[in-house]
Nucleic acid binder design. Structure first.
Lengths: 86, 86
DNA sequence: AAGATTGGTCAGCCGTAGCTTACCGTTCGT
DNA sequence: ACGAACGGTAAGCTACGGCTGACCAATCTT
């Protein structure tokens, strides 16, 4: 995903950069697209992929709220007196 | 990890809750301990595990800075005029 | 001192994520 | 119209994460 941050790229172009084959890249892009993290656009025989800002932001938010919840409830506990029942 | 958030627990105790066997739990705890996310304390034949606040916070920070960097550099790009070279 | 509890470790099995190769469809250039 | 460029998809292989069962060590109880 980091390789798409700079600018939109075609599949083969990505594959050149990465240590994996073109089909592998294509498969990755498929799941990223399904997840809404990238969008694609046909350009002749080429297919240009770019990051989807909304998707990436959404993911970030999800993780944020997850961690917020986790740490909140956790700190609640640590602030309580140690109530260990052997 | 969530099962440790509430209060410290012994290995067998965790295994009862979880859908996996006791050895499996033990193995998970090992990697969590190596990662500094939990600490353990001997209590008789039992071994009590608890979350390590420092470790968890550190992980959270790592992820935070990762996402901050990623989104920052990404938004830099999106704000620039679209410079697509076919 | 002997049995019972508890937990770590080892060996082995299994499912699956992720890769490659091969193939096919589509679009562009000439 | 035909070859070249580019990508998606299918089939198959491999490596590995994660689980289980068996075993051993340590501690507690009586």
């Amino acid at each position: 995903m980091a390789c798409l941050a700079e600018r939109p790229r075609a599949v083969g172009e990505l594959a050149e950069t990465l240590p994996i084959s073109r089909p592998a890249v294509s498969q990755h892009l498929k799941v990223l697209k399904d997840a809404g993290l990238v969008t694609d656009r046909a350009a002749g025989t080429r297919r240009v992929y770019r990051l989807n800002p909304a998707g990436v932001a959404a993911l970030r938010d999800q993780l944020d709220t997850y961690w917020a919840r986790a740490l909140d409830s956790f700190q609640d506990v640590t602030k309580r007196p140690d109530e260990e029942k052997s």
